[in-house]
């Protein structure tokens, strides 16, 4: 059931990606009902699969969860912001992540599941949700910069035609950041709680770098909310902060491997 649901979701996410990318290849744009309906069907199948995974521990379930949130945000972006171009990034990402999860093997790791409290599961879920929101902010910022460049360069091709207006992308970036950052913060706080309750042992370097990255993300949100940065500057800040998080995450994974460590 878990595998079947995931394979159905994989197929539907892949189809969504094709539908989103088709107009960039010069084909006719898919109707909006399809751009919403296909990923929603994929999400429904994916939810069925993820529900059977509980408690979702280990790399594969985490990737599956991240793919699910990305697909959800893609649908939300299209429904609320008419930003189907978000799917240019989220479509392949969600498809790739769920594919990778299937390759790794979607069986909860017995070693990790043992001894995990509901708080630990909540910490992981909230952290992945926050990460997905920050990814959405990053995507909106990237789309903003691409559209900005086309508008400034007076190029009226596919990007100009198919990407949403600049202001809408700026709003999407703003919303994702101001909701994503508190979510990540909550995830971090839950992580501290779990750690000090003796649930997991975490390397000191991870804590320090994690805090530093939290500050970087906080800066990106701060310049938007407090200093009212908007447009290109805010997009750069958003991209820089998310890139920093990814780089540090990868560096930590390489230096201190451990499947249970998120930040």
């Amino acid at each position: 059931m878990v595998l079947t649901s995931h394979f159905i979701a994989l197929g539907l996410y892949a189809l969504t990606t094709v539908l989103v990318l088709a107009p960039f290849a010069g084909l006719r744009s898919a109707p909006r009902s399809l751009l919403l309906g296909v990923p929603i069907a994929g999400i429904a199948a994916h939810l069925l699969g993820v529900a059977r995974l509980t408690p979702f521990m280990g790399v594969a379930p985490t990737l599956s969860m991240l793919a699910l949130f990305l697909a959800l945000f893609q649908v939300a972006s299209e429904a609320a912001f008419r930003a189907s171009a978000v799917g240019v990034f989220t479509g392949p990402l969600a498809t790739g992540l769920i594919g990778l999860a299937l390759l790794i093997g979607l069986v909860p790791d017995a070693r990790l599941v043992a001894g995990r409290s509901p708080w630990s599961i909540l910490h992981i879920t909230v952290s992945i949700l926050g990460l997905a929101m920050l990814a959405l902010a990053f995507i909106a910022a990237a789309l903003y910069l691409l559209q900005f460049r086309e508008l400034k360069a007076k190029r009226f091709g596919q990007v100009f035609r198919l990407f949403p207006p600049l202001e809408r992308l700026d709003q999407l970036n703003h919303l994702s950041l101001v909701v994503g950052f508190p979510t990540v913060t909550l995830g971090v706080l839950l992580g501290f709680g779990v750690r000090y309750a003796g649930g997991v042992s975490v390397d000191a370097a991870q804590v320090v770098w994690g805090m530093l990255m939290w500050l970087v993300l906080g800066w990106a949100v701060g310049v938007r909310v407090v200093r009212h940065w908007a447009g290109r500057r805010a997009a750069f800040a958003s991209i820089a902060s998310f890139a920093a998080v990814l780089l540090v995450y990868l560096a930590l994974k390489l230096t201190t491997p451990g499947t249970e460590r998120f930040l």
Binding site: Q147, L151, F160, F163, P165, L166, E167, R168, Q171
Partner: peptide
């Protein structure tokens, strides 16, 4: 159209 690609 152009103005519509700048403003929401």
């Amino acid at each position: 159209t152009v103005a519509g690609k700048i403003f929401t």
